[in-house]
Write a protein that binds this DNA or RNA. Structure first.
Lengths: 349, 349
DNA sequence: AATTAGCACTCGAACCCTCTGAGTGCCAAG
DNA sequence: CTTGGCACTCAGAGGGTTCGAGTGCTAATT
């Protein structure tokens, strides 16, 4: 129906305008900017209807309308058209990401800062979820008496390690014996299936006294458990202060307070990742009240997935005001994701 | 002279009052709170004198006085008396730091968050300066064809490593040969004295073709160079928003903007560390304009040194408004430093 | 049924004015 | 050197007014 069509066009126009101007948009301004072939009174009727539908709202009686959370949702789901990044923007991102050459960790950190600068918002990058990846190699390396390095090679070429304490008088030979047994018995096992018991039963027929052996195995266990630890990089928090949306100190405080607990943010992203339905290169978008974190009521979360090998993946995304240019931000995230995937393939060769 | 004494007492009282109330302090309030045995008029004269000396200033004609940068400096250098932390405060810090058991990196991160919570300001922790520490061991460990792990053991038991690419068809035996030669010839050398040339001349009389060898050596070199990279942890930036000193959005923006470039902060701390004159457990205090970083004009920097072994050290400290309780903050930093030193000794056995 | 012109109404933001009181500097006397 | 006294200053709070963008509603038009 034409009228219904127009109502949606009006919603779209309101979102577009509000996103750029940060001011409630009224019927008159709408006409001027968008050349609707109807009068302002008609738009007023449409707007009243949209308000009844819960898609827009008024901050106060004598102001224009702003999109509600549901309005943004509708916009994101059905109205928004994603436009490509300009050549210059792609170039800029490419250049910055290509700067860092070799290390996966650096790559992610770098990507995070590129993303936050490009979007002018807060970027979020999480290290890959390694819990499900297989342990391919495990070496115990004597560093000095009483100290050893546990080196683990996981599927997709990820390497993790940790310095652990071992009994002082353990010889390198004994260490190697333990190391070989453990590696043999754990080979190919996913990290999250390895328990202290798996480990304990992996070494048989040895002359090494139980107490020594157990200490080493326990330390090895902690190293393994620590290998799948998720790190999260948030960057660009200060950008939020520049946005008019957080010019009220209270909001800004509460937002940055929550963001400073990066564990909370990581936990939340993990959670929505688990609920995710689409394929790996879809986006998770959470708007306003949909986000169950204090202080983020006026924010949106956009995240997606990058891949390390076939099965291992991590998340990258952006946190910004819900009044953001969704289409643009999505293109930016998408391109950064693309570059990360490409780069990781190259690093892991 | 008694009058001069009193002037300094007045300065001290002004700083104390201003730090707690955040309001310009006037002659009358001063009398009431500090029981000076003279009249307000006398204090007014003293204050006029202090102003002439450049130690205090007025925000505007009809307000009280606030300390100037030089006033704070005088206070910190001569007037302030450092009081001990209460038992409860020590307990709290101890508990939090003892939580993290084994890893030096975690310890520092943890200390940083303890410090920022305890002080309610921004904490700063820098990883130890390793450039001057000696390379005790260096092992090249084959991970898979084309990929190796460089493990370096430095003096004071610090372990660093990095994954590097190597020629695909290099055998573990060849790698071991290179590794052994390099280790032998570099043993005991400080990191910053190792150059590509030192490395290149360390391997002689080998059957490994030059091109392969050089690639491995180059990669090893990058690993060594990266080992002395300084990381800096800043934490608690959001605390600054709670302080009335940064209730003007502009200030807060500029401050957080600068703090987000942690490289800049690290560079600055390094610089003042180099200019440092006193022993290792003295404090570097920079106040207001003394800090050559944009946006930190209203801040103070307090840093000190923690030790890893005899020669290696790093910095910890706090960034806060120059209107801070210097005495308290110093005690807090001092205690955290003490705990770190203690803990690191335990970790490194 | 949808659109439009017209109109009364609302209410936040901006502006201006006044008043208040803490705090000052200075002077003359103790 | 100290003190009481006094005229002066000025930021900030409070209160009132105006302005105008925007609304909803009604009645007329297509």
């Amino acid at each position: 129906m034409a009228a219904n069509d127009r109502k949606m066009q009006v919603l779209q126009a309101i979102v577009d305008d509000y996103v750029t101007t940060n001011e409630p948009v009224g019927s008159k301004a709408l006409i001027e900017r968008h050349k609707f072939p109807v009068s302002s009174a008609t738009l007023r009727n449409d707007m009243a209807e949209l308000e009844r539908m819960g898609l827009i709202e008024k901050p106060h009686t004598s102001a224009g309308r702003i999109p509600s959370d549901r309005g943004y949702r509708e916009y994101v789901d059905s109205l928004m058209k994603i436009d490509e990044l300009s050549m210059a923007e792609r170039e800029e991102i490419s250049k910055r990401i290509d700067e860092c050459v070799d290390e996966a960790g650096d790559l992610l950190k770098n990507a995070s800062s590129v993303l936050s600068e490009a979007t002018g918002m807060v970027s979020l990058v999480m290290t890959p979820r390694l819990a499900g990846s297989a342990l391919l190699q495990l070496k115990l390396l004597m560093i000095e008496p009483g100290k050893a390095l546990v080196v683990m090679v996981l599927s997709a070429g990820v390497v993790k390690d940790k310095v652990v304490r071992i009994p002082n008088f353990l010889t390198p030979e004994q260490l190697k014996e333990i190391s070989d047994s453990v590696e043999k018995s754990l080979n190919g096992k996913p990290l999250d299936e390895i328990t202290l018991i798996t480990l304990a039963t992996s070494v048989k027929e040895t002359k090494i006294p139980d107490t020594l052996l157990n200490q080493v195995l326990y330390e090895t266990y902690t190293a393994i458990k620590q290998a799948d630890r998720l790190d999260v990089f948030l960057e660009g928090e200060h950008n939020m202060l520049k946005l008019p949306d957080f010019s009220e100190l209270r909001r800004a405080q509460s937002l940055l307070g929550t963001l400073s607990h990066d564990g909370m943010v990581a936990g939340y992203v993990n959670e929505i990742e688990r609920e995710k339905t689409g394929g790996d290169d879809t986006y998770m978008i959470r708007i306003g009240q949909e986000i169950a974190l204090e202080g983020l009521e006026d924010c949106s979360f956009i995240t997606t997935t990058y891949k390390v090998g076939d099965t291992i993946s991590g998340n990258i995304g952006v946190i910004g005001p819900k009044r953001m240019d969704y289409s643009k931000v999505i293109s930016q995230i998408d391109f950064v994701r693309y570059k990360i995937n490409e780069k990781i393939k190259k690093i892991n060769g």
